[in-house]
């Protein structure tokens, strides 16, 4: 009965927190923490480890932004979101940035009023089946039971794919990746479908990853990227250019190992100098410190390092760079110039 006091105490805390300012950047600085929306758990992209610390590729983006804005890669509050809650969480301001392998689509950008700041992973929807089924193409899946995560574009792609190929299937909708795993492993569905990267990550968590194959068909384009709310262009710029900085750093050969040395004094390459703040005032233009990009790169390394550390070929997830290689190496990663 007397616990009404807790509400009261929270009101007090709210009153003392002071007024809320209009700009996300100022909010984040005042709070001293970045609220970053991630998945509820997808190994390699965002998942808490045994100590409860979040790790992964998407987590790396959050940390880089936090490092650029606040100078501290650990100043992030990770907010786990499901397919259902992610957009409301962002729209309502509960999170400042959503880095949850979210596909950039027209309606999300235009109708739901979000701003995708770039693409950090070029993906496509694939299928995973147990090897023993002997299936080699998605077109052989007539009558199969398919586990899908609800609230994602995969659900719509799946319907389109089966409809276009005039074959039938049984959808089994699942809320989170975690719930899908046991259903698939116990055989309650024949096929598990999600983004190819997600399939690789899920398969890596299995006891015997070798018993399962990812089918060759990729049935959709899934450009995954971090996104922010419409309307705060300054904040969108910061996020866009942090992501670009990570990509450009790889292209320019700036890594977490040599960034400290390179940013100590201006070097020969003017673009690196501008990027790292030893020349020009890019940081100031963004409303950040001059060493914003250095901090972002220090947080977890450049794009390539993040990739290799979390989802690359030497990790259990074992994704090849593929489309996600630098443009100089035949991929699609192409950061606009820092100028």
């Amino acid at each position: 009965m007397k616990k009404i006091a807790i509400l009261g105490a929270m009101t007090v805390a709210g009153l003392s927190a002071g007024a809320v300012s209009a700009s996300t950047l100022e909010d984040v600085k005042a709070r001293g923490k970045l609220n970053c929306g991630v998945t509820t758990g997808l190994v390699g992209f965002a998942a808490p480890n045994a100590n409860g610390e979040w790790e992964g590729f998407d987590v790396g983006v959050c940390r880089a932004v936090a490092a650029a804005v606040l100078g501290d890669p650990t100043a992030v509050e990770f907010v786990p979101t499901t397919g259902k809650t992610r957009f409301t969480a962002l729209a309502s301001g509960e999170i400042d940035l959503l880095a949850r392998n979210t596909t950039w689509t027209f309606s999300r950008d235009v109708d739901l009023k979000f701003e995708f700041v770039g693409i950090n992973y070029y993906d496509g929807q694939g299928f995973m089946v147990p090897k023993e089924l002997g299936v080699s193409s998605a077109k052989e899946l007539d009558g199969a039971t398919v586990c899908i995560q609800t609230g994602t574009t995969t659900e719509l792609n799946l319907a389109d794919f089966f409809r276009a190929n005039n074959i039938s299937y049984e959808p089994v909708p699942i809320e989170t990746n975690a719930e899908a795993q046991p259903l698939y492993l116990e055989g309650a569905c024949d096929v598990y479908t999600t983004d190819a990267s997600g399939l690789a990550a899920t398969r890596a968590a299995f006891e015997n990853p070798g018993d399962h194959v990812v089918l060759p068909e990729i049935i959709s384009k899934e450009p995954l990227g971090p996104l922010v709310r419409h309307g705060d262009n300054d904040w969108a710029d910061i996020n866009r250019w942090v992501l670009n900085a990570l990509i450009a750093a790889e292209e320019l050969g700036v890594t977490s190992a040599n960034v400290a040395e390179m940013s100590a004094s201006a070097g020969n390459n003017p673009e690196i100098n501008r990027l790292l703040g030893t020349e020009g005032t890019l940081g100031e233009m963004l409303g950040l410190e001059a060493d914003w990009a250095k901090n972002a790169i220090m947080a977890g390394g450049n794009y390539g390092e993040l990739f290799e550390k979390n989802i690359g070929e030497n990790t259990p997830i074992g994704l090849a760079r593929g489309l996600n290689a630098q443009w100089t190496e035949g991929g699609l990663l192409y950061s606009p110039p820092f100028r």
């Binding site: 397919g83 957009f87 999300r108 609800t150 609230g151 659900e155 719509l156 909708p173």
Partner: peptide, 12 residues
């Protein structure tokens, strides 16, 4: 599951 689930998710 339909209206409060997938429809909500897909349309926002």
């Amino acid at each position: 599951g339909t209206l409060g689930g997938i429809t909500l998710n897909q349309t926002g």
